Simulated scan of single mutants.
Amino acid sequence: METKAYFPGPTRVRENVRQARSLETMNPDMDPQFYEMYSKLGKDIGRIIGTENQVFILSGEGILGLEAACASLTEPGDRVLVLDNGIFGEGFADFVTIYGGTPEVLKFDRLREIDTSVLQEFLDKDHDFKYATLVHCDTPSGVLNPVDEICPLLKKYGILSVVDAVASSGGEPVDVDKNRIDICLGASQKSFSAPVGLTFASVSEAAFRSMEARKAPIASYYMNLLSFKDSIANQWFPYSMPSSDILGLRQAVDNILEEGIGELQKRHRNIAGAVRNAFRDYGLKLHLNSGYSNTVTVVEMPEGIDTVELLLRLKNERGLLLSGSIGYLKNKVVRMGHMGENANTEELIFVLEAMDSVLEGMGYIRTSNLKDLFLKYLG
């Protein structure tokens, strides 16, 4: 039986993206055409995430960008504010510690978005931080944090911001420049619907000035964002770029621009809203109380339904791979990714019909079916 995966990334890859990766490539070290293509791709990604800052494509999965930001900014003894309302939020503290910084973890309610008033109250008392880290969409819980409130507030206190937008960029508005985000990090395998393997990073002039003003050298070669600053102008990269992967991302970005950035985000918004409302009417509880992302929905199973058994039966009986979660949510919730190429009606009908069938087989008493509820709300 063929299996289909609806994880919150990696997402399905369109055929024209796969074909683009098979093309004969330019020499990424020597060919001026490659630098021209790379530069234009960075600018087009900038259009999608709303920035005129330089955008660099790095060879490595999205975690590379998170660590690279911390490696490039952190000096021994630096105090760094880590905003934590989810698993990936708290994970930034590890990167800060690795590079000699001192993380101050500010914890928030994990069932909702970060409360900016709580952050404001904290910063009024203590704002001696070089930079702050936060996650836009925390995929283990599906929470979406208000970067439009948080990052301007941090800037008011002179604090640089590092934003993990890996699971949000493309499917959600990020608006880097409008929201005054200093380093914004994304990846190829989520809403951009290219294969795993590339990180992109937009870096503000303020962030570069902070890196240049360091007393201690950046304690990494591969994760040194400063080494990319003049790479286009000088036509020199610190390491050879993965040209085939970048050609695939080039095509994936073209797909987004052809659809239209606004239309892409509207598609995510409409599908996510219909999925959430369908689950509510069906009788399943959304994990969060508020702060729902349009790229991933997380639901709790009713009493008597074992999450591990549900996921196993979905795979074996219906050929569907859905995801549980990690950390404190392991074996407690089911996550459905509806981002990028996976955010389409036909595929979600398959997912919802499979869940309906397996839940009924496990003894869940329902008064309606997920497919009809989804289509009702989709309009």
Rank of each mutant, 00 (worst) to 15 (best):
S193P: 09
E67C: 04
N255H: 11
R335P: 08
F56P: 00
V55P: 03
D78P: 02
A167F: 08
N255A: 11
D254W: 01
K125V: 15
S168W: 01
N255F: 03
G170V: 13
S227W: 00
N270Q: 12
V13S: 10
H338L: 13
V299F: 04
Q189W: 13
L83V: 08
M336I: 14
F192A: 14
S22P: 07
L257D: 07
Y239D: 10
T297R: 02
G101P: 04
V143I: 15
P195F: 08
T297G: 11
E121W: 15
L352W: 02
Y282L: 08
A20W: 10
L58I: 12
M37H: 07
A194R: 06
Y222M: 06
L370E: 07
V105C: 12
L64V: 03
D126M: 13
D372P: 09
D78T: 09
G324Q: 04
E15Q: 15
M37W: 02
W236Y: 13
I57R: 01
N344A: 11
F129G: 03
F122A: 14
H287A: 02
L249N: 10
L321A: 06
K371Y: 14
V334S: 03
L106V: 06
Y292P: 05
K229E: 10
R79T: 05
P238I: 06
R79D: 01
I49H: 05
S231M: 04
G171P: 04
G361D: 15
N53D: 13
V135L: 03
V174T: 12
S240G: 12
K130N: 09
M223N: 10
R14P: 05
D31N: 06
